[in-house]
Design a protein around this nucleic acid. Structure first.
Lengths: 216, 216
DNA sequence: ACAGTATTGTTATTGTATTAACAATAATAT
DNA sequence: ATATTATTGTTAATACAATAACAATACTGT
């Protein structure tokens, strides 16, 4: 899935991601009392070009004024209308290792839109325990809990060798999106959103570039 | 920086990232006793197409045999020659919150290539403490320690509002690569590698897609 | 010996995303 | 009034990455 229709216009996924970033920049400016902003100002905060900002906003049909630029308040609303999930969205942390815990703390309570509704881990000591009011369940109960709690998104941080199996279980249980941090690629049906972030590859890429730069 | 020269051939950065993934797939197969592998087998493990695998291997000048496919051992060596940093590479964790700690544990001892040589945090209780033999220093000492320990890469996990300032300090100290996990975009000179991963955007993108899929 | 098969290696094509170019516009200054 | 300026909105061009196409090859079975 690489493009998406909004108001019968095709919008690249990358634009969606940038909208999220623009919104954050806008909210910061708004807090400082600014009411309007130019495309090049947004571009300077996030690192994109002014042209790209204008192009993205064109795609979602948002117009600015020639002398004042874009109305921040309105733009935030339009972006929110596109991005936000009215009723909020329930998320599960699957695998409560260091990484899972970090993500838990990172999201817990931060965004009202996102509610961490369950934790899964197969460590006996963790199962049945409560973390900030969120229960930790055995993976055996994925199907049951995902349905009961209406969980849409899973943050997958289990050990690499269990990734595929657990992902399958999540998909079967009806999960709609998986963020895979296990460094093991997984496959999901087309109707399930998948985002994979591979820390090891990122590190190796960084090391490679450092080496390259030192050679010249 | 979008392409890179190896053996006087231009190699896309995306290929570099895939090589890292291929290598992991290869090592797993190697452990299982396999000595040769076909492009479509590699493709099935990671999720790319067989054509892309062949194309990538062509770019680095690695040849397979028509009936046996690619020699796993040799291919691992060639990839390692490209990716690996002979003497190993020293890394610092900058910001020892949950995320920093997770990354610390994730990398600590895992890859001999990567040595976590220092931690920076401005929490008084952490400064001076040792974590698995790695010292935590005050950010004031970045310049001194980065030079003394020959640190090349920084993993940035400080609070968003401090990201820009700390990044500047790291660059001034001579750091060669930054992995920015703060959700605040930073700017670095051309000769410094930068990879930014924005968790919030990823989450919002996931939520957006779930919404989209439910609408149809 | 020869057709059939499966695979590699490479070139050509397509598709997508980014960047550049520029007309349209409205305010300001002369 | 008219030129100048800074910006938006959109179209055109470029660059990049992924996919498709296919010749070359070597093995297998008949």
């Amino acid at each position: 899935m690489t493009k998406v229709k909004i108001h019968s216009k095709e919008i690249p996924v990358k634009t969606i991601a940038r909208l999220s970033q623009y919104r954050r920049a806008l909210l910061i400016c708004s807090q400082k009392g600014k009411t309007h902003i130019f495309s090049h100002e947004i571009a300077a905060i996030q690192h994109v070009t002014a042209v790209q900002v204008r192009r993205d906003l064109m795609l979602i049909g948002f117009n600015g004024s020639l002398k004042q630029g874009y109305n921040i308040h309105d733009l935030v609303n339009v972006i929110s209308e596109i991005l936000d999930y009215e009723e909020g969205i329930n998320v599960a942390i699957v695998g409560l290792g260091n990484f899972g815990r970090a993500l838990f703390n990172y999201f817990y309570g931060k965004r009202s839109q996102l509610r961490i509704a369950a934790i899964f881990d197969n460590n006996m000591e963790k199962i049945g325990t409560e973390y900030n009011g969120v229960y930790c369940y055995s993976p055996y109960r994925v199907e049951e809990i995902v349905k009961r709690e209406n969980i849409k998104i899973a943050i997958l941080t289990v050990p690499p060798n269990r990734a595929v199996e657990v992902a399958k279980k999540l998909v079967d249980a009806g999960i709609k999106g998986i963020l895979n941090y296990t460094s093991t690629p997984i496959n999901v049906p087309d109707n399930v959103f998948l985002d994979e972030y591979d820390m090891i590859t990122t590190m190796e890429k960084a090391a490679f570039f450092v080496k390259m730069n030192e050679m010249k």
